[in-house]
């Protein structure tokens, strides 16, 4: 038995394609503005931070649209349990991270530029991006069924 059905595989390719286009677009825009505006366009403490933040945005986008289109989990996964786990862990992580940023206000932005500390948000964002689209989709499907 295959792990994913044909529609899930099709959606996985489609989501990956959209994410790759987004990644390429953001990298190109960032590089173009960097060349055009020079140091005025530096928004990360290092060039690596800028590239990693763009990668994070593209991967989160991929996660969100894959979960929304049911292409994230295999067809036999017990999704609801996982989703609640990711939602709760995401909220807990986000609370702790925000608390950390409030107690260390200079760690997130250094001279107005984003530092490596931004990646402390990653586990929280990942947890929320896996769970929230699933619940939105579920709610949306119920709404559509009612309309039919």
């Amino acid at each position: 038995m295959k792990k994913y059905d044909e529609y899930q595989i099709f959606m996985k390719y489609k989501c990956a394609n959209h994410s790759f286009n987004l990644l390429t677009g953001l990298l190109l825009v960032n590089a173009f503005l960097g060349v055009r505006l020079g140091s005025r366009w530096e928004w990360g403490t290092m060039k690596e931070v800028e590239v990693l933040v763009i990668l994070l945005i593209a991967s989160l986008f991929n996660t969100i649209i894959s979960v929304y289109h049911n292409a994230w989990y295999t067809k036999v996964n017990e999704k609801r349990g996982y989703m609640w786990f990711f939602l709760i862990s995401g909220i807990i992580n986000l609370t702790f991270t925000i608390e950390y940023f409030i107690s260390n206000p200079n760690s997130l932005l250094i001279n107005g530029k984003i530092g490596f500390e931004i990646f402390k948000l990653m586990p929280a964002l990942l947890g929320l991006s896996i769970s929230i689209p699933y619940f939105i989709r579920e709610w949306n499907e119920k709404r559509m069924e009612k309309n039919e």
Binding site: M1, D5, E6, Y7, Q8, F10, N70, K75
Partner: peptide, 22 residues
């Protein structure tokens, strides 16, 4: 037919054209 419920839903909505095997 060994697919997810969302796949059947997508076919009924006309969002997805299934393969001949399905």
């Amino acid at each position: 037919v060994d697919v997810t419920r969302q796949t059947i839903s997508a076919i009924e909505r006309g969002d997805y054209n299934p393969t001949i095997n399905l």
